[in-house]
Structures are given as structure tokens and as C-alpha cells.
């Protein structure tokens, strides 16, 4: 009985989640033949090790981290800012709430086109703004990251606002009576109570940084040089410069990072984060 209910999902997972993982290890440990008609040969885990210590991996990893550093804190701060501003009783507040959540309707490709109008070196509105310039490695990464920050604003806003609304009014009222200032109330009461939502968002943003692709392809094509080639960009390898063995090894690296993020999240959840109940 249970078998019939579970079989469809399990079959899909087996073929399109677990089998590819096996394929990744297979490619990463085999040397690909020059011609498709020859057999691949087993060369062992040394090849995977070589890939994971190669410049391809370290620079991809570095760029992915850079992307995270630019997107995660800024995304969280802006989300909290918007949500705090819009969490009040005010006539017409729903109009602002709708505006702040509007970027939920943009896909990563649409957001990339949007930022194309802003930062493209030839036709972008901010093409002469140096800290958004796509021709400088540092600012190029920042401009690409800003696309993601903007695209995620709606999501972060919605989640932080929902968390703020779950904070009981009485708590803030009691603290006000005790003479807590607004700043003190925010950091002592609100932030601890919404910390599960903030952790959730931090994970969402970290994962979305690891999975950033379209914004890079649309805006910089990985350049200048390889300054915006993140790990996933090197795996996807749109210009076709890497072999299956290398791209598979890099994928295993990305898998390990994903697992680390999940493990960190799990351990934080089971200890540190304050639960509202």
C-alpha cells in the first residue's frame, strides 16, 4: 500500500537526485577519452582531489564567498529595515507593503534584465558610477550581487514582516512601561524573537548566493577576467572550457558546501536561536 503511494516520488528522486550524484563521483574519478567512442578510464580519487585543490575550485569558491558577503548581510538589513518601517498602523500602509513585496514577482532572469538597464557598460543608467562598474573586478561583483539583493527584497520583507507580526504587542508594551527605549526594545525584544526568521533568511540568502547564475551570465559573462565566475558558473561552464571530470569534481565541491550550510543551520536551530513559544 505505502509502496504505491511512495513509488512515484521515490523513483524520480532516485533517477534525478541520487543517480546524478553517483555520476558526479564517477566522472570525477575517471579520465574522459578524447573521442566519444573510446572508454573512460578509472584514475581514482586523486583526480577529484586535484580538482578540489585546483585554481578553478579555489577561485570559484572565493567568488561565491564574495557574492555571499555582498548579498547576505545587506539583504538581511534591508529586509528588516523595510519590514520595521511597514509594520505599523497607518492609513494606506498596505500600499507600501504591496510595493515592498513586489520584487517577489521577478524571476532571476527578469531581475537581471532590470539591472542590465542600470549597470550595462554601454546603455546602463549608472554606467559611469564607479562602484557599480562592470569593468572593475570588485565593483562588477558588487553590481551583480546587488541584482540578487534587490530581487530577494520582496521575500525578505514578507518573511521579516510576518515574524514581526508574530511578536505579541504586550511584550513591547510591558517593556515600554519598564522604561525601555525604542532602540533597546528593538534589540532586546524584537530581534531575539524574530531570530528564527532571520536565521531562515540567512540560509535562504546563502543558498541563493551559491546558486547564483543568470545574473552573472546576463550582466558580466563571468568577467572581467574570471572575477565574477562563481563556483556554479564554472560548473555550468557556458563557454565549454572544462571537461566533464573537472565540472563533476567542482559539483561535488558545491554539494559539500550545501551540506555544510545545512549542518550549520541544523546545529544553530537546535541550540542558539530563541523560540517564540
Amino acid at each position: 500500500m505505502a509502496l504505491a503511494f511512495l513509488a512515484p516520488a521515490v523513483l524520480i528522486f532516485a533517477v534525478f537526485s541520487y543517480y546524478p550524484l553517483y555520476r558526479l563521483f564517477w566522472y570525477a574519478t575517471h579520465r574522459q577519452p578524447r573521442f566519444r567512442n573510446k572508454e573512460a578510464t578509472w584514475v581514482g580519487f586523486g583526480q577529484l582531489w586535484d580538482t578540489l585543490t585546483s585554481r578553478d575550485f579555489t577561485s570559484g569558491l572565493l567568488h561565491s564567498f564574495q557574492f555571499m558577503v555582498y548579498t547576505v548581510p545587506l539583504g538581511l538589513i534591508l529586509g528588516v529595515l523595510l519590514a520595521v518601517a511597514a509594520h505599523r498602523r497607518l492609513a494606506g500602509i498596505k500600499i507600501f507593503q504591496t510595493i515592498f513585496s513586489s520584487t517577489v514577482a521577478t524571476s532571476v532572469a527578469v531581475a537581471s534584465v532590470v539591472f542590465f538597464t542600470l549597470v550595462n557598460p554601454e546603455v546602463g543608467y549608472f554606467k559611469d558610477v564607479s562602484w557599480l562598474s562592470l569593468s572593475n573586478p570588485q565593483s562588477a561583483m558588487f553590481a551583480v550581487a546587488l541584482t540578487t539583493v534587490w530581487q530577494n527584497l520582496g521575500l525578505t520583507f514578507i518573511i521579516v514582516l510576518a515574524a514581526l507580526q508574530a511578536v505579541p504587542d504586550e511584550m513591547n508594551e510591558a517593556a515600554t512601561l519598564d522604561g525601555f527605549s525604542a532602540t533597546k526594545r528593538f534589540f532586546r525584544i524584537t530581534v531575539p524573537l524574530i531570530s528564527p526568521a532571520l536565521l531562515f533568511l540567512a540560509v535562504v540568502l546563502v543558498v541563493s548566493a551559491l546558486q547564483a547564475y543568470a545574473q552573472i551570465e546576463f550582466l558580466t559573462g563571468g568577467g572581467p577576467g574570471d572575477a565574477t565566475e562563481t563556483l556554479l558558473y564554472k560548473i555550468a561552464d557556458p563557454k565549454g572550457v572544462r571537461g566533464l571530470d573537472v565540472r563533476s569534481g567542482l559539483s561535488i565541491g558545491l554539494f559539500a558546501l550545501t551540506a555544510i550550510v545545512a549542518a550549520v543551520q541544523y546545529s544553530l536551530l537546535s541550540k542558539r536561536v530563541h523560540y517564540g513559544d
Binding site: 528522486f13 533517477v15 534525478f16 543517480y19 546524478p20 550524484l21 555520476r23 546558486q211 563533476s248 559539483s251
Partner: peptide, 21 residues
């Protein structure tokens, strides 16, 4: 656990393997 495990295997990770499939 098998279902949970797929959370660690988003399409970005399995891209290369799935493309070959």
C-alpha cells in the same frame, strides 16, 4: 531520510549528472 537527502541535491549540484542522463 532519502526524501530529506534530496534537499542537499538541488538541480545546481546535480546539473552535470542530470544533463548526461
Amino acid at each position: 531520510i532519502l526524501v530529506i537527502g534530496t534537499l542537499l541535491l538541488p538541480i545546481e549540484v546535480t546539473l552535470i549528472g542530470n544533463l548526461e542522463t
